[in-house]
Design a protein around this nucleic acid. Structure first.
Length: 600
DNA sequence: AAAAAAG
């Protein structure tokens, strides 16, 4: 049996910082003047008053000695060599649409589920990590963190549906770092000098190189000044330097599958000592393209079997069939879903426009021109992310936009890694305020200031749509998502209408009409029509014999705040962790501040 | 009929 509950989240103001400080993605650039945004239907292009790029620049590239003289707490400065924001921000944040998101639905199922905590201090994560959590200004755990961390720290396997922006990365990093810290085996005993094999205790896998980097950077912050050694392994760059790094010993390895396999085959890495395995964007990692590789790494190398390692799978979407694959990797796992589709998601305005293929380019130009004339020109603070279907299409659209006066850059898997990273940097910095990307950029990446996501080509499945539009509307900022819907996309009509409806969007009648005519039943080739199935519920519930899972877990009332307001209501509730929800929900959580990139 | 991930 499972329980389902709605929890009240009360938010509160945090103390105003006395000095410029790191600002987490979800708290960056809270929207200001959103009324104009809604009226024009164009992204808010006004430069947020609280952001200070000059200030951010000024601390960059400085040696610790320099900072040390200025500030005795230089460690903290070095710790986040990132964006420094001035403190006027804080206030703007906390006043953001709080009430609408006070109730966060949480569903958990499985045997003997460790109860959630209300604060980080309720769990012994170790002094070093605890200090870093403070350094990160993590005031209060997010819902996914409150639930997932106790489960993970208890050593349980976990399948977690967590909304983007809800603190997923920390939710699996904290328990892993904490576990490594408690491990008595020093890293030097697991790797010798010379060419010995690196034996990490933890492996974190991600579907793209850039996402691996992001997680790596994030984990480094969490492990700052502890003895926990973190390394990253991904393709498209010299393996030599990565191997040299491994020779120094590694506790936690963040990797993409290809390069990892390469290293294992070269006998530079052994998975024999793995105690923790985490798959980020787990449904992607287990989809048709990736599944064989993952299976190879998890089942056919020297990775300890389920039961002797701890496995954690995280994603915002989790279709049934993927849950089935996934359960092969897990033992007696807890299923967790945070967030619900259908709750207010007015932070992302979703528009669908019926555009024929041949008209798309001009339509895009008109859209961008309107956007430009509506407000400040594209800038660091109003980035537009355009998704296309193919790599060639990305290049062609980049050229088309450039020829027509829009500064655009393309990012896709046919570019060499340097170009990919350069494109991303150029976009993030605002130097090239339009990024034309394939799905390489659809998941996990945290790009502040994306005001508008345009699905120039619709993705093949609705999950990707959810992930793509989740690149905007983050950090409590309003976001706009525009979809160019052509007759090639009719199979998506139903699921798209469903997604929009669930996030309180206005669904055009023509779309509803088509949704009825084209119920997503067809299945052909590699196109997987799944209708609306993000897997917001535990697949095991469908299994006839529920005896294995009959431990009911009621959430203890803590200060009256955690008392479920309802339990297992009617069955009509659709529990899903969707990006849209998550975006909407992010600011109200009121985690004070914090979190870093990779907040996804 | 695709994107991603090794070189």
């Amino acid at each position: 049996m499972t329980w389902t509950g709605m929890f009240s989240e009360s938010t509160r103001k945090t103390t105003r910082p006395t000095r410029p400080r790191y600002l987490p993605p979800h708290m960056r650039s809270p929207q200001i003047g959103n009324a104009s945004f809604l009226e024009t239907g164009a992204p808010e292009l006004t430069r947020p008053r609280f952001y200070s790029p000059q200030l951010a620049q000024s601390t960059r590239g400085r040696g610790p000695w320099l900072t040390a003289r200025r500030n005795p707490n230089w460690e903290d400065e070095k710790f986040d060599e990132l964006e420094v924001v001035d403190d006027t921000l804080e206030e703007a944040n906390v006043t953001n649409n709080l009430e609408a998101y006070d109730d966060i639905p949480v569903q958990a199922s499985g045997d003997n589920i460790p109860p959630p905590v209300k604060t980080f201090s309720e769990i012994d994560l170790g002094d070093g990590l605890k200090q870093n959590i403070r350094r990160c200004n993590y005031i209060k755990p997010t819902p996914i963190q409150r639930h997932a961390i106790p489960i993970a720290v208890a050593g349980r396997d976990l399948m977690a549906c967590a909304q983007t922006g809800s603190g997923k990365t920390a939710a699996f990093c904290f328990p892993i770092i904490s576990g490594v810290l408690k491990d008595s085996l020093s890293v030097t005993r697991r790797v010798g000098g010379g060419s010995e094999v690196a034996c990490p205790l933890a492996l974190i896998l991600a579907p793209t190189r850039e996402l691996s980097c992001q997680i790596y950077e994030e984990a480094k912050k969490f492990a700052y000044m502890t003895r926990v050694q973190i390394a990253v392994a991904y393709g498209g760059t010299s393996i030599y330097h990565q191997l040299r790094r491994l020779e120094r010993g590694v506790d936690i390895l963040v990797a993409t599958p290809g390069r990892l396999v390469d290293m294992i085959e070269r006998a530079k890495v052994s998975l024999g000592m793995i105690k923790y395995l985490a798959l980020d964007e787990a449904d992607r990692m287990l989809d048709m393209g990736f599944e064989p590789q993952i299976r190879r790494i998890v089942e056919q190398m020297d990775m300890p079997p389920p039961g002797t390692r701890q496995t954690m799978l995280f994603s915002a979407t989790f279709p049934d069939e993927i849950q089935r694959f996934a359960s092969d990797f897990l033992l007696d796992y807890v299923f967790l879903a945070v967030g619900r589709v259908g709750s207010s998601t007015d932070l992302i305005v979703q528009r669908v426009e019926l555009v024929q293929e041949m008209d798309k380019r001009n339509h895009l130009l008109n859209l961008l021109r309107t956007q430009r004339s509506n407000g400040t020109p594209h800038s660091k603070h109003a980035l537009t992310l355009v998704f296309v279907e193919t790599k060639r299409g990305a290049d062609k659209l980049e050229r088309w936009l450039s020829r027509n006066g829009f500064s655009a850059i393309a990012m896709h898997g046919d570019k060499v890694q340097m170009e990919r990273e350069q494109a991303l940097r150029s976009f993030k910095s605002g130097a090239t305020p339009i990024l034309v990307a394939t799905d390489v950029a659809s998941r996990g990446l945290d790009i502040p200031h994306v005001a508008h996501v345009i699905n120039f080509d619709m993705p093949k499945n609705i999950d990707d749509y959810v992930h793509r539009i989740g690149r905007t509307g983050r950090a409590g900022k309003f976001g706009l998502a525009t979809a160019f819907f052509s007759d090639k996309n009719l199979h998506l009509a139903k699921s798209l209408a469903e997604v929009m409806k669930e996030s309180s969007q206005e669904v055009p009648t023509w779309l509803i009409q088509n949704a009825e005519n084209y119920s997503a039943s067809g299945r052909s080739g590699w196109v997987r029509h799944r209708g609306v199935d993000y897997g917001g519920y535990d697949l095991r519930k469908d299994i006839a014999s529920s005896s294995t899972y009959n431990d009911t877990y009621a959430v203890p009332a803590i200060d009256g705040q955690y008392a479920p307001t309802f339990l297992g209501s009617g069955g009509d509730d659709h529990w899903v962790a969707s990006d849209m929800n998550l975006n909407a929900a992010a600011p109200p959580y009121g985690y004070g501040s914090v979190v870093a990139s990779g907040w996804d």
